[in-house]
Amino acid sequence: MSKKVAIIGGGVAGIEAAKKLSEFGYEISLFEKDTELGGHVAKWDRLFPNQRRAQEVVDILQKDLEKIQVYKSANVQSINRENGSFSVNATGKSYPADAVVVATGFELFPAEKKEEYGYQIFDNVITSADLELMFKKFGKPQTVSGVNPSRVAIIHCVGSRDEKVNRPYCSKVCCVTAVKQAIEIKESLPNCEVFNFYMDLRLFGPGYEELYKKAQTMGVTFVRGRLSETSELEGGRILVKAEDTLSSKPLKMSVDMVVLMVGMSPNPENNELFNGVGLAENSDGFLQVNDYHTEPTKSQIEGIFIAGACSGPNNITDSINAARSAAMDAHKFLTRN
């Protein structure tokens, strides 16, 4: 009888880990709390750095899932460990497993916590995720009254590198997302002015710097300075205030729309889910891995492996690599003497 592996989370990391372990011949149960697989990627319109459709990546990953037992709308409540094997409790039932891969991902930073930015107070302050939905629906941004904006401010580092909201870390992917979205606004509305407010630009991957240069050439203005506050003007326009730190002067401007680049926050469900089995969190609140450099997909507990953004902000490629690494680790564990 083949051994069983439970995978918690059906985003890109979870799906990839499930497929790889299934190829090794294990019996896989994949638990997804949502009604569909694909996680955050399935909610995105296009991806950096090449602006391909996010759905394309989700479709590729979802191919050949026949051998995998997928449980959708399945909330995992707890994991128990007894005599070296596990039981996963989801929606009132208990599922036995010889190993567990945790791929519970992240949640987007709740932007309303930065109250001075006006999210959920002013209608035309939206998040990067809201803008992706807009691109999916209309192909271009539009204000709450249904008009196309003629000026947009994009705010970097919302819920990242900010000790005031207990998110001292960099979320890694928002800078390049901001540049990608700036380009997409320009492409869909060529006469729309776009201003990106940044502190440092942290674009680290292949093709990212080229994307930044492309945005500059298309006329996107990059202002070095963190947004201090927004206020609403007559007619729903937004006044943004910051410092232009390159000239050491306070700066203000009115815009039709503000887009907040929300960072990645630890999944709030992780705590109650994993405390029982003894998985710890790191100083940023994400799941602690056994060795950051040499064992980045092993947890501190034998038989539990960690893949994707549940251990910290990741892009899709890194999450998929982590999933494969976790699958290898699990395979090694399951074939031990």
Partner: peptide
């Protein structure tokens, strides 16, 4: 003079230079 107001600034020269010499836009400060 002590502040920047992007509602009042005249960015015409910047736009003209960007047309004549496109590398003007790609400065990373």
């Amino acid at each position: 003079i002590a502040s920047v107001d992007f509602d009042k600034t005249n960015r015409k020269l910047a736009e003209e230079i960007a047309l004549l010499e496109p590398t003007f836009s790609t400065c990373i400060s």
